[in-house]
Design a protein around this nucleic acid. Sequence first.
DNA 1: AGAATATTTCGATAATCATCGAAATATCGC
DNA 2: GCGATATTTCGATGATTATCGAAATATTCT
Lengths: 121, 121
Amino acid sequence: MKKPDVVAALAALAQDNRLDVFRLLVEAGPEGLPAGQVAQKLALAPNTLTFHFDRLRDAGLVTVRRDGRSMIYAARFEAMNALIGFLTENCCQGSQNATAEACAPAAVCKPARGKRAKAEA
Amino acid sequence: MKKPDVVAALAALAQDNRLDVFRLLVEAGPEGLPAGQVAQKLALAPNTLTFHFDRLRDAGLVTVRRDGRSMIYAARFEAMNALIGFLTENCCQGSQNATAEACAPAAVCKPARGKRAKAEA
DNA sequence: AGAATATTTCGATAATCATCGAAATATCGC
DNA sequence: GCGATATTTCGATGATTATCGAAATATTCT
């Protein structure tokens, strides 16, 4: 993943509603969700949602396909992993220098099936 | 790490120059770097750089301390790890559903001392 | 074809952002 | 205290952003 793509992905996720949208799609899994369902769950105007979907799509974080009159959006886990990979490699090293804090090793993409532990907030 | 903090951190990193600044600080390690040195390495005007530092600082991604007439900025690895943790937990699950692509497990904060492998681009 | 549903496109608007030049502040060495 | 160095503050500016209402497009059903 090259830097411009990383910046684009970060920018796409750096917005309240968009982060919610993406998280919802992640939770929904590879099947994805129809735009309307996302709009309803997050209480977003359909045109505003289109705006956000476009940005997530431009950043390569989601895909769309049509199903009847619905548009089904789905998270691209591949892209998300590439992003995390970049951040990990480029923005989280030097940890062995760190004093006490810092760098609790953690696995990327843990199984976490059953309604994960509410994620703290 | 709560969602607003996550959004703030993502926004802070979602800018070309700022991502460079942060990466430089990460590379520099906990010791940090004087503002002037960062300005020089990245060819940024000092006032512009202050602007970016402020944003990184508001997002909790860097710290400052004064040393003589220099201001020394340093990356907060702790915050970076929290961010990666959030993304991993909240935005990278459902992987076991994923078909082939997706979710190559990787360690957060690998040692990576000797001038890491150029990071692809 | 015509009504209904799902989503997108268009145009406008207020807010935030990145950058700049000029001036201010803090610290050092003399 | 004075000149020099390092960085920040201030004010302005053009660009991008998120949201909205209204209209357009696509698809299904009858």
